[in-house]
Computed example of a mutant assay.
Amino acid sequence: MAGEGQAPISSSTIRLDTDALNAFMAEAFPHSQPGSRGRVVSAAPGHVQARLDPNEQALRPGGLISGPTQMGFADMAAYALVLAHIGPVAMAVTSALNYQFLRPCRPGPLFADAQMLRLGKRLAVMDVRIWTDDAEKPVGQANVTYAIP
C-alpha cells in the first residue's frame, strides 16, 4: 500500500529493482537452497524476467522437468512482478494459479517472462510464459492472481 509520501501503486512504476527483488526473496525464504527458487534477471514497469537452473531433483520420470517445478517457478516470477510494483510486502499471496503445459520441458535452464495484466488495490493479475531454449516456443503458460494485503 502507498505509505506517507509515496505515490499509489501503479503498473507504470516499479518500487523494487532486480537486486532488491533477489535480496528480498533470499530474506523472505531463508530455508530455500540457493538457486532452488530461481532469480530475477530483469524488472521493468509491468514486466519481470526470471531464470531457474533446475537440478536433478526437479526431474520427473522420463527426464523432463516436473510440473511442480514449472508451476513453482511461474509463481515465483509472478510474486516478483507484484513485489516490483508494490514494494516489499511479504504477505502478498497467490489466490489463483492456472497452468497450461504446452510441450515437454526438457532439462536445462528455464526462463520466465511475467507480464502484468491488471494491478488493482487488492488483486494483481499476471500472465507468465515459461520456456527453455526458445521464447517463441513456451513449454508452459500460467495465469496468476495475487491478493494484495
Rank of each mutant, 00 (worst) to 15 (best):
I86D: 05
P34V: 01
A90G: 05
A7V: 13
A74L: 14
A84Y: 05
D19F: 00
S11A: 15
A44S: 15
W131Q: 07
Y79K: 10
V144H: 03
A26E: 12
N98S: 14
T18S: 09
E136Q: 15
T132N: 14
A96R: 14
G3Y: 11
R122K: 14
A20R: 11
Y79N: 15
Y99T: 14
P88C: 06
I9C: 00
T13C: 07
R39A: 14
D19I: 09
Y99N: 10
S11G: 08
P54Q: 06
L119H: 01
G63Y: 06
A26W: 03
L123T: 14
E56W: 05
Q49W: 02
A50Y: 04
V93F: 00
P68S: 10
A80R: 14
E56V: 12
V125M: 09
A26S: 11
L102D: 09
S12K: 14
P104Y: 01
T145G: 04
T13L: 12
D19S: 15
A74Y: 07
D133I: 05
P61L: 04
Q141S: 13
I148G: 03
A28V: 02
R118I: 03
H31L: 11
M116S: 09
P34H: 03
F24G: 07
F111D: 07
A78N: 07
M91P: 04
S66V: 02
R118F: 03
A23S: 15
Q115S: 10
M91Y: 11
L52G: 01
E27L: 12
A58E: 14
V40T: 06
I148C: 01
G67R: 10
M91S: 13
I148W: 02
P138M: 06
D75Y: 02
K137I: 06
V40E: 06
L117V: 14
R51N: 05
V139C: 11
L59Y: 00
L16V: 08
T94W: 00
R39G: 09
R51C: 08
M91D: 13
E4T: 14
T94K: 00
P68R: 09
V128C: 00
R51H: 04
V139E: 07
A23L: 11
G108F: 04
L21C: 01
L16E: 11
N55E: 11
P34S: 02
L81F: 00
P109K: 06
M116R: 02
L16F: 01
A80P: 01
F101V: 05
P30G: 07
G120S: 08
A112N: 13
S12P: 04
V125N: 12
R106G: 05
S36E: 15
A28M: 09
A44G: 02
V144Q: 07
T94S: 14
S11D: 14
H47A: 04
I148S: 06
R129Q: 12
P107Y: 01
G5V: 11
P138V: 07
P104L: 08
R39N: 05
T145M: 08
Q6H: 12
P61I: 05
R103W: 04
G62L: 04
P54M: 11
T132C: 12
D19P: 09
N55M: 08
E27M: 13
A135T: 13
